[in-house]
Amino acid sequence: MANKEPKVRVQNLTKKFGDLLVLDNLNFEVEEGEFLCIVGPTGCGKTTFLNSLTRLYQPTAGEILVNGIPVDPKKQNISYIFQEYSSFPWLTVEQNIRFGLEIKKIPKEEADANVEEMLDIVGLTKFRNYYPSQLSISMLQRVAIARAFATKPELLLMDEPYGQLDIDLRFKLEDELIKLWKKTGTTVLFITHNIEEAVYLSQKIMVLTNKPTSVKTVLDNPLPLPRDVVSEEFVALRNKVTDLIKWW
């Protein structure tokens, strides 16, 4: 595959806050259309990692290439789903979902179609004119997901988007996410501290080390979709990842 440029290529990524070394020389590649889960011990700088990737933080050293050129949210179609609830309280559900499309100056007809499609997929069509303050927590996160997918991103970053949800909601939204991913063929980088979630969703699992963070290993996840969380293979892989993360 030497002749084909990977979707994302990270070279020597390093980030320091003052004297504190958080990311230590990260190197990896992500193929087009891949679903990569990133797991690691608590507080290992996963969020810093993702924020450096989108230039929310300026990396201290190293390079991040998307499609072979340095990452720039103004040029590349990237979406980010944050850990915190990030829907804009002053916009309705529909306006929230439309936000990215407006920033990217997508023509109105196409934008309308995308918004309708997303409203339908996340099941919020009835709530299109509601404001975030009127919605439940799971609905809010669905708004954020719809907003991220509405721009048909070539690269989607997710930072523990389901961390604070109930378990049944999480399962539901995880299935929704897989559905969306299959439909759109987006490349996904998904951060989580939940190993079961990582094994359930991913094609590849990247395990990070404790601070200062570096890549410990990347595992393939060949289990066929949809996955069964109690199957033998599933449990085996989950235990393998758990062992890799253990630092005690």
Partner: peptide
């Protein structure tokens, strides 16, 4: 203005002016 709101705009590639008029000002209203 919440940082995460500005981040949403930034990751969508919003310009400085868009960040101000579409995020910071509505949130400061």
């Amino acid at each position: 203005t919440k940082t995460v709101h500005l981040w949403v705009g930034q990751t969508f590639g919003a310009s400085n002016w868009e960040l101000l008029t579409k995020i910071a000002i509505p949130s400061a209203l």
